[in-house]
Amino acid sequence: MKILVPVKQVPDTATQVKIGADPKGIDTAGITWIVSPYDEYALEEALRIKEKQGQGEVVAVTVGPERAKEALRSCLAMGADRALHLSDPAWENADSLTVARALAAVIKQEAPPLVLFGRQAIDDDMGAMPAQVADLLGWPCASWIMEETISEDGKSVRAGRQVEGALEIFTIPLPCVLSAQKGLNEPRYPTLKGIMGAKKKEIKDVKAADLGLAADGAQLLVVALEALPPRPPGRIIPGEPAEAVKELVRSLREDAKAI
């Protein structure tokens, strides 16, 4: 079975994000870029499906600038068979709908029965992509899945998605879109052999024209990023514990209105 895994390159989770000179974006100097962690769960699951079935193909896709190739190379090192890099001036400053249209178009061309997303990218946490792409394709979609099993006949997937305090189980006909939640699996480390072999695998450049898409301009525009106001310092209540607790409870009730 062919499985397509869209991934996004994002700043490392340990990055101290700073607003850039142009306040519409962040300062990217010195940032280490990684594959968004939820996308790694998606890729791991795709690789496991392929391994279980003993055949198939895992294709990693990204929309992003030149540096996003590194993210694709990481996916290839982990075990993806090939990669598609959607890179075109038309997609610079793209909003989520533009990206979703690009992904939907490439999915139509590749025609995989299954598309596995991460539940959201950890940079802007928009989380729009799986549902938007599924909608554009007219495919069913289950988000935040914690487990999945492809049916014997390969026609449907049984997916469990996380809801408050329980798993909600669906049987979904293929083709479909799934998005991975943390806990779906434990992503593997790439092996050194995988890393050394990644260069030999294909990363195909795809332009907007290759997908028959015109530059249609973003409809969602970032006006500015604003830093959060600094957190006010904590307050230490002095005195004997018994007295201090009384004051704490009073303060929580009357000042903070928390209880």
Partner: peptide
């Protein structure tokens, strides 16, 4: 790029 990836893997 391979050396950087091997370094990152070993670090993690």
């Amino acid at each position: 790029e391979e050396q950087q990836m091997i370094q990152a893997l070993a670090r993690e």
